[in-house]
Amino acid sequence: MKNHTEIKALVFDVFGTIVDWRSGVAREAQSFLNRHAPGLNAFDFADAWRREYSPSMEEVRSGRRPYVRLDVLNRENLVSVLTHYGIVDVPDPEIDELNLAWHRLDPWPDAVAALCSLKRKFIIAPLSNGNIRLMVDIAKRVGLPWDAILGAEVARAYKPSPQVYSETVDILGLAPPELCLVAAHNSDLAAARQLGLTTAFVARPTEHGPHQRTDLKAEAAWDFVVDDLNELAQQLGCAD
């Protein structure tokens, strides 16, 4: 384990690490599906929508498309998924409202209390691919106590593009080891480590549902490996 005395700020992946996107999107989609596709499982719909997430961001990461915020990509992906399932003639206001499902996600049970503990000692902020308004809406709804909103819209790039991490270090006025990325995704941590950031893996083995196959465990010797954020707070000397 790395000596944590040099860490001054913690930044967090949000979708999957802080909030349970799958359950939240399925919950928000259920009434929509009851009207338009009553035979379609809401979790299957949520999974299909999420599968469009990374490919749509790769268009931006590759330079094939200029940066647009995640709300725009999510809406385009939603239209694609509706078309895939044969759900047609949905009024635009209904599509817009369903797209806001991502703004109304619930945190994992340990998240809020642990973040409040960590905030007493460290600067804490999201380092998410979600845009600023998206992050603010989630935080205000459930009480995430961020000190700042950082991530893709600030850097105008999507993780794991290097500039997302390097610009965050610069914005906070820190040396890379003084900034710790906390994430449930090994690829996110690997990109951060290449830029010299401290890394913390938190296990979220049901992010993708009961049959998850990826990110079930730490796949490298990250600086911290924990089962939940309360354990991370304890290791960093922030537990109540």
Rank of each mutant, 00 (worst) to 15 (best):
E97L: 12
E97D: 15
L98W: 03
N99E: 11
L100H: 11
L100Q: 12
L100F: 04
L100A: 07
W102H: 08
W102N: 10
W102G: 08
W102R: 05
W102E: 06
H103I: 01
H103Q: 09
R104S: 03
R104L: 04
R104G: 04
L105C: 07
L105G: 05
L105P: 07
L105A: 08
L105I: 09
D106L: 13
P109V: 05
A111F: 04
A111S: 14
A111Q: 07
A111K: 06
V112G: 03
V112H: 05
A113I: 13
A113D: 13
A113L: 10
A113E: 15
L115F: 04
C116Y: 11
C116W: 12
C116S: 15
L118Y: 05
L118E: 03
L118H: 06
L118K: 06
K119F: 03
R120G: 12
K121V: 10
K121D: 06
F122N: 03
I123L: 09
I123C: 08
I123S: 08
I123D: 04
I124W: 03
A125L: 04
A125V: 05
A125S: 11
A125E: 02
P126L: 12
P126C: 14
P126F: 12
L127R: 14
L127V: 08
S128Q: 12
N129W: 14
N129Q: 14
G130S: 13
G130K: 10
G130Q: 13
N131Q: 11
N131E: 14
N131T: 14
I132S: 12
I132D: 14
R133P: 10
L134C: 07
V136E: 10
V136C: 03
V136T: 09
D137M: 03
I138R: 01
I138A: 01
I138M: 02
I138Y: 00
I138Q: 02
I138G: 00
I138H: 00
I138V: 10
I138C: 01
A139G: 01
A139I: 00
A139L: 00
K140M: 01
K140T: 01
K140H: 02
R141W: 00
